[in-house]
Amino acid sequence: MILAQLDPRLNFFGKAPYSLELWGYVTAVVVLGIALIVAMTKLPTRARKPLIWTSTFLAGGFYVLYWLWPQPVGRGPLDLPRNSVEAMSFWMSDAQVKVADVANILTAFLLCLGIYSLLRVHTNRILRKHEDRFFSWVLIASMFGMLVLGYIDWRQRTFLDKDGKLLEMANWGFAQFGKDLLFDGLFQQMDAAMFSMIAFFILSAAYRAFRIRSVEATVLMISALILIISIMGAVVYGWNNMITSMLPVDSAPVLNNFKISEIANWVRSTLQTPAIRAVEFGVGLGALAMGLRLWLGLEKGGVTV
């Protein structure tokens, strides 16, 4: 954090973009990162525990302090702090970005482990001549196809296409058409198909939920029915007009409360919202307690084994 806030000319991030020197640094850091991960996996569990706890405590401690310390108000890019409290708050808000970067870099390394897991499972399937090995071939081919075409497309758009010609489809090459086919033509369509299947699943789940077997199921069905009806325009129009026609001209309109839109609003604001807030309070408290136990290393077993 402190190093990252040094003069940009002195630190890693001050190197000229796309220069050989920067690529050299990036490669060295990637190799070091991989070596660090390998070294960590070789450590025995007993040795890993204090290391994990220390890094968790330091990272958690930083964010606790960041949250507790007064935040700078109306800070401009060239502002100097007025006192030591502001100096600390300036430093913390600058450092927070770097800490978040560390988390992002770690995530990138971990993604490689995820891809390794995926490749291991599917390569084994192919080698063992599993009956569904065709799908493993498809997965591996799609993964590498997307990777290669995506990289070529990115490289061409970033470095070679200074005039933005590739924004026009007429100027596209193999990489652009290939990426478009794989991403927009196949992946997005399949994504949408999976999403649309939810409609059918909702129908079958709703059918089972609405079979009246208990008092709770009956309450669920009635409230669901009210809410469903309240968003059906024609029914709402008819129902509300019927209520309006029943209203006496010169008296307090109590009957207004029986309009379907009013009943549905009452269900939402008086029953549903407080229930959701109560659940959210519980969930928030659970997360707070969980975070506290992890931060202070109080938990035994599970993640903190």
Binding site: V279, V283, G286, L298, E299, K300
Partner: peptide
């Protein structure tokens, strides 16, 4: 439902730290 999810590890292990929390 809700925070029962967070109560699960305390419920299953009866670890004093988790139950106290």
């Amino acid at each position: 439902l809700g925070d029962e999810f967070y109560a699960a590890s305390a419920y299953l292990t009866r670890e004093p730290v988790l139950v106290g929390s």
